[in-house]
Amino acid sequence: MIYRGKEGQWSWVLHRITGIGVLLFLLTHILDTMLVGWGPEIYNKVMSIYRHPFFKIGEVGLFAAVLYHALNGIRIILVDFWPRGTQYHRQMFYGEVILFFLAMIPVSFLMLSH
């Protein structure tokens, strides 16, 4: 059985997943940008793959990962540096979730309708 941790544990799990996700994107992004060294033809060919609807949804996922990682990063900074941060870590997590959805709803709409 997985340990039934509370908000702290799940915020950390999500932080790890989104962190690895963003890192994988950056590695892919470095590789595809590098292709320009082999000429515009191959570069444009690879770039055209990104127009597939799968990547459109992936872009929204990437934005979500960066946003969560950034918001939770601020929460971790506050826990580490604000002496009363550990007392309010749960409230900060729920605040972070609200901010996440407030930003994600319009951004997803804009990105997917573009």
């Binding site: 941790g5 580490d80 550990t86 007392q87």
Partner: peptide
Amino acid sequence: CRTIFNCSDACPREIDVTRAISEVKR
């Protein structure tokens, strides 16, 4: 320590363990 808070949640004596660790870190 990654400030996961499982320690504070588990403590049967209700010690704010993560806070103690954070104080040492700071």
